[in-house]
């Protein structure tokens, strides 16, 4: 290497180093904020989860209790009740939302009069703040003068269903509210996917004599899996975090029927002010979410391979 080339090389190295420094400086605020608000709290919560914590008169970690808080949860029938409710809620939310959204997306993928209007309308529930959607569904579900019972009476029925009364029916009412809220996102996502799946592929299948159902089952559906699985992942994550709707509609009741793990964490932390157990529950919920996402991620990579993407 000539001396000149060496100089150039050193300079290039210096600019590169400098560029890297500038890049790091540009990313630093975001990284710092995220560390302060996520990494540090996540570690603190981990510490809480193995501690006995006193909140009155002021916050104090009283001592180390090993895995006591976790064992408390895992031996508590209420914890397991909340776990099953959470899993059931997550699976049902994904299933109902995806099926309904797929149907709506297939409809919106056709051309008809008023499609633009329908597209905007389908998007609207997404724009309603979760608390507001809670309030408006309270109005729908109201046992005496709610719209649903009014509708049933208008068609000659009894119309006396107490939608938020029993623990099972209340859970499904919350489910309806959440499905309604997430259909816009899922529909938009699936519709975008449908527009990517080349129409020619589906037409070719039709020419090959595949009926609409077989065409869907063997062509559209496998091709759409790489789009549907991410939607399921998003929906599942959201289902694990549902709070506002439950808070407004049922407060986790009746008789804990709508208390998901997330809501249980809230209750333990901010109603009972038992931060140790709340922290343990939060970590158990995180573990559940991560395991489910890992499974779905594995499905995604498989579906991508099958679809040849």
């Amino acid at each position: 290497m000539t001396p000149q080339a060496q100089v150039v090389e050193v300079r290039a190295g210096r600019t590169r180093r400098r560029g890297r420094l500038v890049a790091a400086a540009m990313a630093a605020p975001a990284v710092l904020v995220v560390c302060a608000v996520y990494a540090y709290p996540a570690l603190s919560t981990l510490a809480y989860s193995v501690s006995k914590i006193d909140l009155s008169p002021r916050f104090r970690i009283e001592g180390f209790v090993w895995l006591r808080n976790f064992i408390n949860q895992l031996t508590d029938a209420h914890f397991w009740q909340a776990t099953w409710i959470t899993v059931y809620f997550g699976v049902m939310l994904c299933l109902l939302t995806v099926v309904l959204s797929f149907l709506i997306a297939l409809l919106l993928n056709k051309t008809f009069f008023g499609r633009g209007l329908l597209r905007v309308t389908v998007l609207l529930p997404w724009a309603v703040p979760p608390v507001a959607s809670g309030v408006l569904w309270v109005q729908m579900f109201h046992a005496e003068f709610g719209f649903l019972n009014g509708l049933i009476r208008a068609f000659g029925g009894e119309g006396g269903i107490i939608w938020l009364g029993g623990s099972t029916i209340a859970l499904h009412s919350v489910l309806v509210t959440e499905v309604w809220r997430w259909i816009p996102f899922a529909t938009l996502f699936i519709l975008a996917g449908l527009q990517i799946v080349p129409k020619s592929v589906r037409e070719a299948a039709a020419i090959d004599g595949a009926g609409p159902w077989r065409g869907f089952r063997h062509v559209t559906f496998p091709l759409m899996l790489p789009v549907v699985v991410p939607v399921v992942i998003f929906l599942f994550v959201w289902a694990m975090k549902v709070f506002d709707t439950i808070f407004v509609l049922t407060r986790g009741g009746p008789t804990r029927g709508t208390t998901t793990l997330n809501f249980l964490t809230y209750r333990q932390g901010f109603v009972q002010f038992d931060f140790g157990n709340a922290a343990a529950t939060a970590y158990l919920l995180s573990a559940l979410t991560v395991v489910a996402i890992a499974g779905l991620g594995w499905m995604l990579s498989r579906s991508r391979r099958l679809a040849g993407m």
Partner: peptide
Amino acid sequence: MSVPGRRVILGGFAAIYVLPTLLFVLP
């Protein structure tokens, strides 16, 4: 630009979203 550890940072940003908000809210 070449930020050291950019993959980890981007991956971390996505992973955070998966965890329940209350996990961070307690502290």
